[in-house]
Amino acid sequence: MTNCLIAGVGGQGTVLASRLISSTALECGLNVRGAETIGMAQRGGSVLSHVRMGKSIASPLISPGQADIVLAFELCEAARTLRYLKADGLMIACDRVIQPASGYDPAAMLDILRSSAGRLMVLQSEAIAETCGLRALNVALIGAACACGAFPFSVGDMERVIDTRFDAERSKMNKSALRFGETLASAGRNRRGNGERHGDD
């Protein structure tokens, strides 16, 4: 069983991300179950998608401390979702900052992540924005997760699903974002200390 949470701010594409992941898992012969935040929170509030992949799954919701992987599209949302992460779980966060009304200090938030997350990878949103555009940030993070072996499927499996879901232009855009995320993650893993960090490093 793989438990994946996707955290973000309403409008960042968490629903699409969870649909892509769950469809790919289904294509690979797994059962999937999950839940979305749909409704008022989509207007710029905190949103959380639950994705569970495996043979036999009962609950659509993941309990705190049970997520194998968290994909966070925003820094503060990454910190908010920490409590869901397993002790040895992987947090792939993006350093994009969308300030809520009360505001926060991005550096302090990054410190919380660094001191709390078991395995942490922080991707630079500016690099993603320049190469793929911020709209494709969700798919880029999925690519990074694939590169870390976090999902029960490969980047190639997901590319096939993307081909069936989008027209040629959007399919090309999403696939290049997927590959870019994969490259970012691989580069991060090679540069020790800069990319994925272990809590006990």
């Binding site: 401390g65 910190a79 908010r80 409590r83 869901y84 809520p100 709390s116």
Partner: peptide, 14 residues
């Protein structure tokens, strides 16, 4: 969870 012991204060995002 690692963070379960002392959850840091995260600003609300209504």
């Amino acid at each position: 969870s690692h963070a379960a012991a002392a959850p840091p204060a995260i600003p609300l995002r209504p």
